[in-house]
Design a protein around this nucleic acid. Structure first.
Length: 509
DNA sequence: ATGTTC
């Protein structure tokens, strides 16, 4: 019987293949020197020839999951079970330390190991693109100002300060992308995207993105709370009275969508090399590699671009109504944040930890268009990874919603009733049932759970006055494609093909 | 989410 056979060496972490012969020769040499203990022989071999680093595989048991949500109805219970199933799949990823689900959690798709909306994870030295979602930097931004006109007139001004919907044209000659001149376009995750970044500034896109007009009563207790928690600089901008507030909610548009796609390719390539059997949604990029650093820098640029996008809209609006910014607050809720060696990923999760100066972070949590937007201070609850929810969460899927209100009349009636106290504009013309308050979870319940779990402290409420949503343009992406002439289709395919070739050439992730 | 769709 041999001292060690090739299977023993493979079990010990050596790669099968050509070098196996040399390893077995080594073993034969040990044997000829009189070594008879296989364990000792393996120890010698590992000293002489280090085996390759072990390949990552999904863990047998998931990392710990904290649950900051209490389901009540049957529907909610089913939702939470689905969310936990998704999280448990994801938490088997070897680089993930722990995770949390927040009061607005809802499942996202059926693919293996996809992080649910309202989920967050702590990842060691790695970035998982899928866990910050395709809509990188989906974020909130608020500007406080003094009212100049009626809500209706200010909403008219807002309608011409931004745009929504699936098309993609430059808004007008006056709008500039203030971060387009940054020296970032050599970054492999950003290269080639400069023009679309420039074109889409002041645009908010589709779906649940919105521009909300509200009002807030700033009072002494609110200002005292800001001062007490290290936000005296913000408090100094206010006097105790009523302010109007413009709040926008959108992400990084096509720029971020492409950065995400490239990041996902890089991650899948990385785990194909260094790990085995990792679901695509769990694929990671090593943060301490050149690719990881490039991806990190690209993400930071996407954050700057998105903030500039919010600001561009707010400035255009204030110019149109002849007012000025008193104060600004904003936060991302789809993103990756580094604290030490840990990369916290949130998909629909509001950062609620203390910053480097020990100040609890300010955050904006919208509920639905007819409810206040909450201004919160982070609760810094480490057991919940120090996140708060990002909104009310969706109760019913878009398709389930349409089934519930099948005919036009019932739909119109339900929409009107749920938005009767506010001025709602649907940018593309028709209301979108799935973005009315009817589609969202019970706002009171989400608020209550923010308090029950100590995720954040609500220090002010921005009351709703009006809102612009993208609305239903009447045609899906697919419809639009079907309307194209065969010649247009060929052109699009040709361009896509050229991009792919270019991408492949560029693509050395 | 996305001038989509490896």
């Amino acid at each position: 019987m041999k001292l060690l056979c090739s299977q023993d060496l493979i079990d010990a972490g050596y790669e099968p293949g050509l070098q196996m012969k040399a390893l077995l020769d080594k073993v034969a040499e040990y044997e000829s020197r009189g070594i008879a203990d296989p364990k000792y022989a393996l120890k010698l071999l590992k000293r002489d020839v280090a085996p390759p680093p072990p390949k990552g595989v999904m863990r047998e048991n998931p990392a710990p999951l904290a649950q900051a949500i209490v389901p009540e109805t049957k529907e909610e219970k089913e939702n939470v079970e689905a969310v936990k199933r998704q999280m448990h799949q994801l938490l088997k990823t070897p680089v993930i330390a722990r995770g949390v689900i927040l009061p607005d959690a809802c499942p996202s798709g059926k693919e293996q190991a996809v992080i649910p909306v309202g989920g967050a994870i702590a990842v060691e030295n790695a970035i998982i693109p899928s866990a910050h979602s395709a809509d990188i930097c989906c974020s909130m931004f608020a500007t406080f100002y003094d009212e100049r006109s009626s809500v209706a007139k200010e909403l008219d001004a807002l309608m011409s300060s931004t745009r929504f919907g699936p098309e993609h044209r430059h808004l007008d000659d006056l709008v500039r992308d203030p971060v387009n001149d940054e020296n970032v376009w050599q970054n492999r995750f950003l290269t080639g995207l400069r023009d679309r970044a420039r074109t889409q500034i002041a645009d908010q896109g589709d779906g649940n993105h919105f521009a909300y007009l509200g009002e807030v009563d700033v009072d002494e207790p609110f200002l005292a709370m800001l001062r007490l928690t290290g936000h005296g600089d913000l408090a100094d901008r206010f006097t105790p009275r009523r302010y109007r507030v413009l709040v926008t909610h959108h992400g990084s548009r096509s720029l971020g969508a492409h950065v995400f796609k490239r990041g996902q390719i890089a991650a899948e390539k990385h785990v194909a090399r260094t790990a085995q059997h990792i679901p695509p949604a769990a694929a990671w990029i090593d943060a301490n590699s050149d690719t990881g650093r490039d991806y990190w820098h690209a993400l930071q640029y996407v954050a700057r671009w998105t903030k500039a996008n919010h600001r561009a809209i707010h400035q255009r609006f204030l110019e149109r109504i002849g007012s000025a910014s008193v104060a600004e607050i904003g936060n991302e809720h789809n993103f990756v944040w580094q604290r030490g060696d840990t990369f916290y990923h949130g998909k629909g999760a509001t950062p609620a930890w203390k910053d480097e100066q020990g100040r609890p972070q300010l955050g904006l949590i919208p509920l639905n268009m007819a409810e206040p937007i909450l201004l919160v201070l982070g609760g810094d609850r480490d057991e919940f990874l120090s996140f708060a929810p990002h909104g009310a969460g969706r109760n019913l899927s878009r398709t389930a919603m349409r089934k519930k209100f099948p005919d036009q009349a019932s739909r119109r009636h339900a929409i009107e009733r749920s938005t009767k106290d506010i001025d709602v504009r649907w940018y593309c013309g028709k209301p979108d049932l799935s973005e009315t308050p009817l589609a969202y979870k019970n706002a009171a319940q989400v608020r209550a759970q923010i308090g029950e779990f100590g995720l954040a402290e609500i220090i002010a409420e921005i009351r709703p006055l009006g809102c612009i949503m993208a609305g239903d343009s009447g045609r899906s992406w697919r419809d639009r494609e079907e309307e194209l002439t065969p010649k247009q289709k060929r052109q699009i395919q040709h361009r896509a093909e050229r991009r792919r070739v270019k991408q492949d050439l560029m693509d050395d992730f």
